[in-house]
């Protein structure tokens, strides 16, 4: 299969972003289709950023933040992300985009193996779904 999905990953600086660093230091391997964008906190991620990614050709958006309830470096940004993503998934469904194209995962700074697992399984899932809109870009 020659098609490679385009995926944007928003990782928070403190948990998922730190896990991605650990994954690097540990020389774990994962799929290179995912381009990370580091945000200060998942609470900073606005619905527009996610929708903008899809509108500009992303096939999937992955969000990695700190575990609920207590890990968020900024107290409760992760809960804000949870609620936003939950509503957005409903919106995606209504406009005919598979909600699975948007995924939110809690990944602590120590969970590099989980990060790798999440990234790879997400890429697999998007591969199965194919390109957004069914057309090969």
């Amino acid at each position: 299969m020659s098609w490679r999905p385009k995926i944007i990953a928003f990782f928070c600086r403190w948990c998922a972003g730190a896990a991605a660093e650990v994954a690097g230091v540990s020389r774990l391997r994962y799929d290179p289709s995912v381009v990370p964008i580091i945000v200060p906190c998942t609470g900073r991620i606005s619905p527009s950023m996610i929708v903008e990614a899809f509108l500009n050709g992303a096939d999937g958006v992955l969000i990695g933040g700190c575990h609920t309830p207590n890990d968020c470096h900024y107290v409760a940004g992760n809960f804000k992300a949870f609620k936003r993503v939950y509503l957005l998934k409903k919106l995606l469904q209504e406009v005919g985009v598979e909600p699975e194209r948007l995924r939110l995962e809690w990944i602590s700074a120590t969970e590099a193996p989980k990060l790798v697992k999440v990234v790879n399984s997400f890429v697999d899932e998007i591969r199965k779904l194919g390109p957004l809109g069914g057309k090969h870009a």
């Binding site: 385009k6 944007i8 381009v35 964008i37 945000v39 200060p40 900073r44 606005s46 527009s48 950023m49 903008e52 990614a53 500009n56 050709g57 992303a58």
Partner: peptide, 16 residues
């Protein structure tokens, strides 16, 4: 330095 427009531009930049 993490304004909404910057964030959107970062997303667009990847896709460009």
């Amino acid at each position: 330095n993490y304004r909404e427009e910057q964030a959107l531009e970062m997303v667009r930049a990847v896709m460009r």
